[in-house]
Design a protein around this nucleic acid. Structure first.
Lengths: 347, 347
DNA sequence: TACGGAACTGCAAAGGTTTGCAGTGAACTA
DNA sequence: TAGTTCACTGCAAACCTTTGCAGTTCCGTA
């Protein structure tokens, strides 16, 4: 029913190959002919059949975008940016959700691999081995993780976490807690590493909690442990958890930032909408999406294995959930020795 | 490079057609043969080439999902549910974002139409005409809108809005305001219609404001007008706007719900996280996504034009942003006559 | 005038799969 | 025993496009 290249050829009195060239290599066909063909095509509502094109060229002009959870507010801005960038380059995007499950993720990527020109793995939970194996079948770019020999775009959360800790210490907090994220998360490891090092360097006590699910529920549930730790400054793995902490503290009648300061990571839209507005380490999610798409599409040429690994800068955004600590207000700090890591949840 | 059906045929000593049947109509091939073929295929890592399959069957096993704004928190749960449902039925989903722009939307749907088996239009901004035209080229299901002769799934926001107004009136609010959404939105029209009728029926004054962008910014910006209206009960087009109103009122030192009650629509995840927690009309977004996919896939058969239009129930979720109105607390109501619609922004 | 080249265009094979039709042998029926 | 049916498999055309190669025309140059 829909018009094919043959219909256009017949109606405009040229061979199909000329029609084909009109669309895929316009410079090879006479201007006059081209115009005639285009007019006829327009008239017939002809659109090149991407399946047929893919069959012979081997390129589908589709990419796959795999995320852990579409409904996690961290991802939509990334998806949006990636899709927009891809469309600008005449690519369509399959979006798929793994439900934070590594097995689903694996199946998904296998199913998708053969019918796309590349796959974007965002915060993958699969093993490095598996990712590398997939990378041999199809161009892959991972986001928020570093895997040897695979192109990646990551956020400099280590630097962001350091700035956050320094911010809290600078406000006079000498007892801090890190609310860890999910096991298997590269970002979580980075943050923890950086936070422990920074806490030592600036001489504050640190309690490390976790691993936890990266959700608001888990954040609220962690408030008990936070209170036991005597910490007055909290850095959470992400904003969702930080908001959960805010919630939990509020229910307990503990005021933020007067009694406890809270910092998140990501700067999701939500963090500006809760009360108090959340101080957080902003990660450039949209830029990550765009960059990842560009890196993926750059793998086309024969120069496959570029394996660039791009790190994007983060920035501490100070809002209303952090304030002066007990030291600054004259309340004595807790008794533990300076610079001590009180507990360390091994991953 | 990747294994084809021919490789599998050769390696297992059967004709390609047998291999083909092994995958697409297993019941037609002998169990023994089938097992052998499957083993060989597994071994060679063979996956049917969807492009080739699409070329001959005319069915891509892909669907397109077009939304106004991926980053609008209303959509991700819908996308997630739709994608999951589609994948269960062996379909992949292209997700695309129109940036709330009807021209982009039109181009997008045209580009996608030829390479998918169906298109899901979520909260479309295009004209009815155009949607109907697209519906002739490719199976279409619209969400959150009714278009003649096009299958649709909508939420019963009229009923939800009515319940919300009754809730406010029941709390003793006699001066209400409706904060309208974007022009071109079917949902907005429904809500307005229902709110005006209900306000008349229960005998409260109503100020209608709008149209507005469906954003938190617009909600905050509308607070001036809300205050001028003397309304003590507000229904916003969606939660995002309602949260903006909360924000704006807070900045002005007006307490919610003590002085003004606010109700939203949608029950996005966020509405449970702001303070006060938002009273809102919950719409079954995930169910809408699943239903829409099923309706789309049901259009396969020759029984094309089913044109079912499904309405999903909504429910008022009472949280902390609504409380007793001035009448209940002894403060006299404003002077305007009961049941009067003070202003009506024509769309 | 003859020749080389440029600018176009046509020809036909190829890409991986599905599917109607026909063929084969075996089991069943009369 | 002969004919019929059944279960399975092979054959080959078809789906729509791209692209290397070859052909044609025309222009410029020697």
């Amino acid at each position: 029913m829909p018009a094919t290249i043959r219909d256009v050829a017949k109606a405009s009195g040229v061979h199909v190959s000329t029609v084909s060239r009109t669309f895929s290599s316009p410079h090879l066909v006479n201007q006059e002919t081209r115009n005639r063909v285009l007019a006829v095509a327009e008239n017939l509502g002809y659109r090149p059949n991407r399946a047929a094109r893919a069959l012979i060229t081997g390129r589908t002009h589709n990419i796959g975008l795999i995320v852990a959870d579409i409904a996690n507010p961290f991802f939509p801005p990334l998806i949006k940016a990636a899709e927009s960038q891809a469309r600008d380059r005449d690519y369509h995007v399959f979006v798929a959700d793994t439900n934070e499950d590594s097995v689903t993720e694996e199946k998904l990527v296998q199913a998708l691999a053969k019918q796309v020109d590349g796959v974007l793995l965002c915060s993958p939970r699969m093993s490095n081995d598996l990712i590398e194996r997939v990378g041999r079948d199809v161009p892959v770019v991972v986001v928020n993780r570093l895997v040897e020999s695979i192109p990646a775009v990551v956020m400099d959360v280590a630097q962001g976490a350091r700035t956050a800790i320094e911010h809290l210490a600078g406000l006079g907090h000498s007892d801090l807690a890190l609310l860890g994220g999910p096991r298997g998360s590269w970002t979580n490891r980075e943050i923890r590493r950086s936070v422990i090092a920074t806490a030592r360097a600036v001489g504050v006590n640190l309690t490390v909690l976790g691993p936890n699910q990266p959700t608001e529920i888990a954040g609220a549930a962690a408030v008990d442990a936070i209170c036991r730790s005597n910490a007055t400054g909290i850095l959470a793995y992400n904003d969702l958890m930080a908001i959960g902490v805010l919630e939990g503290l509020h229910n307990r009648g503990i005021r933020v930032p007067e009694e406890i300061s809270v910092v998140g990571v990501d700067d999701i839209a939500l963090s500006r909408l809760v009360r108090p507005k959340l101080t957080t380490v902003a990660t450039p999610t949209a830029a990550a999406g765009r960059t990842a798409v560009d890196m993926l599409l750059a793998q086309r040429g024969e120069d496959r294995r570029t394996t660039a690994q791009v790190t994007l800068h983060t920035e501490l955004v100070v809002r209303d959930s952090t304030g002066p600590g007990p030291r600054a207000t004259g309340v004595p700090a807790s008794g533990t020795a300076r610079g001590q890591v009180a507990s360390y949840a091994k991953e």
